[in-house]
Design a binder for these strands. Structure first.
Lengths: 213, 213, 213, 213
DNA sequence: AATGAATGAGCCTTCATTCAT
DNA sequence: TATGAATGAAGGCTCATTCAT
């Protein structure tokens, strides 16, 4: 049965094969964008890495920009999922902080260069670009929601603006993580330092563990 | 007189003229890198903007990378000087925070796009590039020293690592500032929120003003 | 019934379906060649416009050149038929001229762009191309025959060479028609001016209407 | 003297050399556009033929379109000059016709393919293109002026519209000339036939030579 | 025959850098 | 040193055609 009688089956197979190539291209793009950055990666290279013809690239993505955005989107989604999967039940913001930072750091270690590329290279796009905008704020969005929830539960200082602090947290992590790496700090230590920092900054009554005495 | 008989005088003038052209090129580069970013700016554009011949560019800078680094270096130096000039006597870290954040924000407003360009575009360079490395950490260096001093005076929590937190502060500012701008927050409000955030995060006994009650 | 048992019936249906697709492709090609010209029209566009798969194009035409030639051939045949249908009984060359010019102009108005495309774009083909040659001279052929007939009836000047003048007429019409359009002349006026022009040029004793007095 | 003291002299020389390359490129373009047509000629080919680097092409012409227009403009100017130079004193329109047609035919023979390319390929450009418009009507413009003059002198039929007939003449020549060539007619014969044709079509009282008797 | 994904040679253009003057 | 024309490798993208299903 199938390929002759039922066009749908043949079509399904074909579109499955097509989808598979798209995946191959995306995987290749991920590898190269991480390795060499946006500007140093050519569609041609991606195609070769994915083992498809140069022209095939353009039957899956309209241009280089599009595949980068798809890559960045996916990267942030992967991170979000990774983190969400690792936060059992959010009892309070402080616990969330620890779990989330640990998860982010784990993810970053398992995917070296991924976040740097997805978060930095995206800035080359026109700030008015619709899709770029969406992708750019995707990463901060998770933090913002969590901060917002904690704020409603009264755990945070009144002057903590979720929107602003969500972005601030993102910045902290982005800048501090590579530095911690350069300084040779262990993941545990890094997470502890940063969690304390953020807890004190935002939580009204952080557990004693985050203070000095 | 002089220019023919006295080589030194002629030489001085010549080197003065040369230095002046270099300045013109740098000023042009600053304008264009801010306006269009590193990749969208061509040496030809810089030369034209500086009103010198295209080829002259290469008698002042070895390549495009070099002028960008010079630009980024200068930008961060300007910022540092601006901030330092605006901090009267550093009585304590909290005061420093307020003055510094205000100064940074002022500088950013007076030089729109400058920091974004100098801090983001520099990431296009090979992370192992010696000069790029220096420039990259220039901005955080000021913070690190101040935090270090405050730590020695015992104002800060023991777990505050100056090196790490210097970079963290830089990240907070970089991410939060554009967001505050997008949200329409005034400079005063932004500075207050961020100063409170950072003060609570690092200072053992911040002034009451930074708490809630 | 039929389609499985009786091969001939099935075959007929199949070839009918095939012929119908060919027609659809030709109609699509006509539309697009007129709209965008030969070089700006891709086989893919034609297929999509005809609502068939891209690859199907090549089971009806060997290449893009072939469908263009088929289009141009058809266009000129349509014109010829249109004109022939509108010339009742050719009493003399002068009458023919009026009817023919009117018909051509009508046809051109009803099929804007058709002749321009069929007559101009065909020049992109190698002048030695056999089929292109045939198509190229198809349009003039009608004129040539008519002029030849009139010549044999003794209506025309002895030095009127049918072959040459057939092409000359074609050139006149091609160049003058767009110009008349640009000048805002009505069809009636254009036909009258051109008919007079050609009548005086070729007919020994044109009716008084074509002279000045 | 010169290159050091007087910048103008050096500049003049440089710009002379530049102008010379432009000429070389134009000559190469002329050769190739005639030989292979607009679409089959690549800027790359033109550059190679002119013996300059590929990129040099683009410092003299913004794009392929621009050099084609320059070529077509020049071609028509050359023709116009050639014709004007060969018309001693225009006693009357009939004489003009003979001289002009002879000159055009001569020019066409000496520059085989030139007019075909300049007059046909230009139609590939957007009809609203300003420069293309200018070039397109350049060729007819000469005829129009002459017809207009003759009309004012009362030599022509009242219904001869200079604008329209200028274009008609152009069309006649364009279509008839290649046909005459294919038929093996001599230049003299072709010119005579066409001159008679046009004279009868437009001149009230053509010399007896153009009639039959 | 029909499908549409895949192909890859080829196109036009850019631009960092060099070099003769 | 200053000039600006010249360079040519490289870039992103297109599209007529092929081919496995």
């Amino acid at each position: 049965m199938g390929s002759i009688v039922d066009g749908r089956v043949a079509g399904d197979r074909a579109s499955k094969r097509k989808a598979e190539k798209r995946e191959r291209l995306l995987a290749a793009a991920r590898k190269l964008f991480i390795q060499k950055g946006y500007h140093e990666t050519r569609p041609q290279d991606i195609a070769r890495e994915a083992d498809v013809a140069h022209g095939t690239f353009y039957s899956h993505f309209n241009d280089k920009r599009e595949i980068f955005l798809a890559f960045a989107y996916e990267a942030q989604e992967d991170l979000t999922n990774y983190v969400v999967d690792r936060i059992p039940e959010v009892k309070n913001f402080e616990e969330y902080l620890n779990h989330a930072l640990t998860a982010i750091q784990e993810f970053a270690e398992q995917n070296p260069g991924l976040l740097r590329s997805a978060l930095v290279d995206i800035k080359v796009f026109d700030p008015t670009d619709k899709m770029a905008k969406v992708v750019r704020s995707k990463f901060a969005a998770g933090f913002i929601r969590i901060i917002s929830d904690a704020k409603e539960r009264g755990e945070l200082y009144d002057d903590v603006d979720p929107e602003l602090m969500g972005h601030a947290m993102m910045g902290v992590i982005q800048s501090a993580a590579p530095q911690a790496y350069r300084m040779g700090k262990s993941r545990e230590e890094f997470v502890k330092l940063l969690a304390n920092f953020l807890a004190r900054a935002m939580i009204k009554e952080p557990s004693t563990s985050v203070t000095n005495d």
